[in-house]
Structure formats: structure tokens, C-alpha cells
Nucleic acid binder design. Structure first.
Lengths: 151, 151
DNA sequence: TAGAACCCTTGAGTGCACTCCAAGCAAGCG
DNA sequence: CGCTTGCTTGGAGTGCACTCAAGGGTTCTA
């Protein structure tokens, strides 16, 4: 068995260096059309939120069934995974939408996308440093309380 | 010179294991009464936010001048530093208020305080792990764009 | 004794990221 | 056929953490 031809990256890239790796909510193999409630199960987002993401342009228009219901594909799920990561960084939704627009604009925006991600990367490093700092404070206080409790 | 008698911890503790260490906004030495705008300069919070913190019980009542203006002391600044750390962890303000209440209730709440901080500590570790994960994704994408740009 | 700068209060307003509602369509089942 | 379940829409509502406005008092410098 081999990785399916799923492109998963922002632009139909030739050799996709960037394929989506481990996923937390395993998708069924060989499927490429999911209802909104399946996506809810995979991502933990609500159906409301998924529709809202689409409305504000954080997702490109989702394919529809003959009756007008949304049918998400694996690439959509990959994108949602990535958006989830960005969300963890604290990036505002408006910035994510900006990134999504760059993706839709095509390969000409590679430099801009990289700049955006590098700036995000810096934010993440800062945040990690802050959290490590906070951890030290917490540890100091916890050991204070522990000592005071057993003294 | 010796550390001043500032207690800085939640309860007038005997030997304070928990003294506040490095501060980012250096305070003048030997002072213990600050106007709200000085505190704004030290903490980066707005005066609105400082008053709001007091209203919701995130800070105990601040000392006042004879004309009713707030005069913050070093211990208040230490508390604000700590609150800033908690804020970085993403802890909701309501939970911080809960912690502040425990502090006001006295030494009998040491165990509860420790439990709260330990739970926060776990959250912080989780968050750091998530951010490291995100960092990997960002690095993968950045190097993809870098390669595509120079290819 | 001006005038500017600073501070006070209560209560309302803002921005973000969802979250829900109402009304209605479509498919599957006994 | 009727019932249930799942999906659709636009627009309104929610909760959080501030943020500001209005109207007034105080403190500092000249």
C-alpha cells in the first residue's frame, strides 16, 4: 500500500514535500467524501463552526451533493487540521483568512505565505518561552504549598 | 543591601520561599506607593483594566490616598505579575478570581490552591506540547516554500 | 489662580469567535 | 403516508475580556 494521491497542500504542488502526517481522528481509508457530521466527528469542531469557516472564507467552497449538502474531501480535512494548528498558536481568524486567500491566489504568493508562516513561527517560539517561564513560577509556588502543607 | 521585607506572597508567610524574582518593568527602589498610571507603565495593562480587575475581585481592594485615588504597593505589583503569568496560560479570568478568593480566605486553602496550580501546570505542559507540534508543521511548510522559491 | 494633566465612578459598548434559532427541504423506514 | 433524522440558510444572540463615555473631582506647574 502506498500513500494515496491526495495532494493536501495549498496549491496543486508537483512533488508535495508537505503532505499531512499523523492525524488524531483517523479517517476511513480510501474515502474522499464526508458529510458535515463526519467532519464534526473527525475534527471536534461543530457543524456551525464548519459552516461559519466557509462563510468567512477560511475554507474554499466545499463540494455539494446533488441535493445541496456539503461533501468534504480529504484535502478539506487536511486544511482543517492545519487551521487547528494555527488556532493553537493564537493567530486571529482574520489572519488565517488572509493566508487562505493567498493559497487561493496561487503559486505567486509563495513568498508572502512563507513570510506569514515565519512570523507565526516566531510568535510560537515566544509563546513557548513565556510558557516555560510561567512553568517555573508555578513550580516554585507549588513546591511552596507542598512544603507548607507537610510542615 | 538586602531584600526588603516585602512579602509578595498570597498570605503573610513566615519564610517566603515564593518571593517574586526578576521583573520586566523595573520598579524604583524603596518605594511602596504607586499611582495607577505608574502601574500602567510597569505592567502594560490599561488603567481601565486595572480598575476592572479590582471590581471583579481579581485584586483585593487597593489602598487609597486621602482623596480617594488608588495607591498600589509592591505586593499589588507582584500579584499583577503573577496574574500576567496565569493569563499567558489561557486560564479564564473567572478561575483567577477563584484563586484570588482562596488567597483571601487564608492559609486554610493551601491544598486547594496547590491543586489549582497543579492543574494549571498540566495545562501548560499540554499547551507547550501542542505548540511544539505546531512548530514542526510550520517548519515543514516553511522549508517547502523556501525550496519552491529557490527551485 | 489659571490651565493642563491626572484620577474617580457607573454603566454601556466593542471585538472576537463562535453559537444558536427558525423555517424549511430531503432521505430512509415501517 | 407520516415520522425521524440530518442537512440547509440568514441573521440574531452569547460569553469573554476588556474598553470607553460622560461627568465630575484633584494635583501639579506657572
Amino acid at each position: 500500500m502506498q500513500t494515496p494521491p491526495a495532494t493536501t497542500e495549498e496549491t496543486p504542488a508537483p512533488a508535495d514535500v508537505c503532505a499531512a502526517p499523523p492525524r488524531r481522528h483517523p479517517r476511513p481509508e480510501g474515502q474522499d467524501r464526508y458529510t458535515i457530521s463526519e467532519v464534526v466527528a473527525f475534527t471536534g469542531l461543530t457543524a456551525h463552526t464548519l459552516r461559519w469557516y466557509e462563510r468567512i472564507g477560511l475554507m474554499s467552497h466545499i463540494d455539494r451533493s446533488h441535493t445541496g449538502q456539503r461533501r468534504y474531501c480529504n484535502r478539506d480535512l487536511d486544511w482543517l487540521d492545519f487551521v487547528g494548528k494555527l488556532r493553537l498558536t493564537g493567530m486571529p481568524v482574520a489572519d488565517m483568512v488572509r493566508y487562505a486567500e493567498l493559497v487561493r491566489e496561487g503559486e505567486g504568493t509563495y513568498a508572502a505565505r512563507r513570510a506569514l508562516l515565519e512570523s507565526t513561527r516566531r510568535d510560537v517560539l515566544t509563546r513557548i518561552a513565556e510558557l516555560n517561564d510561567t512553568l517555573q513560577v508555578l513550580d516554585r509556588k507549588i513546591s511552596f504549598y507542598t512544603g507548607a502543607g507537610s510542615a
